[in-house]
């Protein structure tokens, strides 16, 4: 007897099962979102547009503390429009998306999630392909075309650098001053409450428009604010789940 041949019907059946299994696995992987386990803290930033005067101190303090070159802003403030007579600004740090397109597209996993939700950049690993810069819907990433040399004009007036300068040929972005958060936590301080443990842009804000804290802590300032006030996030329709919330400017009665 000849060996049973794989006929066309069996082949199609097997193919169908194979495709189903592979796509099923993909769906499961996608549904579990970030591969990193969520840690006890989930840092979020709340920016009150009603209080923001667009002074740009946050941008300057960020430049100094993170040694960002003058032509790059990790935190950019732009005029968005007017509510009544009042100009309204959007201050835009990195949104630290829970489902960040930049992390998805990075071919070398230089962008990763931290357990506390911060989207980290590994500048050693980055190959400068700039996929992430294109993928980011918030234009929060900037490419280093040249080595940043010489003094930083924002130093020392707006603060002192706390992280090393990035080399030429990598993409850089805001990281919620993770170094301040980590140092603060190790000293028993509370990020968002103790200035030493809080991002530089929050501390410098003259009007208190920026608030930082732990989303998991119901007693934190951010949790209370988000509970009491209506808020929105930028480009929510893209399902990136940003960790930066905005409190809209309310027209004066």
């Amino acid at each position: 007897m000849s060996e049973p041949k794989l006929n066309r019907r069996d082949f199609l059946k097997l193919s169908a099962v194979g495709v189903a299994v592979i796509s099923g696995l993909k769906v499961i992987k996608y549904a579990t979102a970030s591969e990193t386990e969520a840690g006890p803290h989930q840092w979020v930033m709340v920016i009150d547009q009603g209080k923001c005067t667009g002074c740009g101190y946050c941008t300057l303090a960020c430049r100094a503390h993170n040694d960002v070159p003058p032509h790059i802003s990790w935190n950019e403030v732009t005029l968005a429009g007017q509510v009544g007579e009042k100009p309204v600004y959007i201050a835009r740090p990195c949104m630290q998306c829970a489902k960040a397109p930049c992390v998805d597209v990075c071919p070398v996993q230089a962008s990763t999630y931290r357990p506390d939700g911060i989207v980290m950049m590994d500048y050693e690993r980055c190959i400068g392909c700039r996929y992430c810069e294109v993928a980011c819907p918030y234009s929060a990433r900037s490419f280093n075309w040249e080595t940043f040399e010489g003094p930083n004009p924002a130093v020392p007036e707006w603060g002192e650098p706390e992280v090393p300068r990035r080399p030429r040929g990598v993409v850089e972005k805001c990281c919620f001053c993770y170094n301040r958060i980590d140092r603060g936590l190790s000293l028993g301080l509370i990020p968002g409450v103790d200035p030493e443990a809080t991002p530089a842009c929050i501390n410098i804000c003259p009007t208190g428009a920026r608030v930082f804290g732990d989303f998991n802590d119901p007693e934190s300032n951010v949790s209370k604010l988000l509970h009491e006030r209506a808020s929105f996030r930028l480009r929510e329709e893209l399902a990136t789940f940003p960790r930066v919330y905005y409190l809209p400017s309310i027209p004066e009665a």
Partner: peptide
């Protein structure tokens, strides 16, 4: 410096 905040 003043106008930086008091733009209105």
């Amino acid at each position: 410096l003043c106008i930086n905040c008091h733009r209105q």
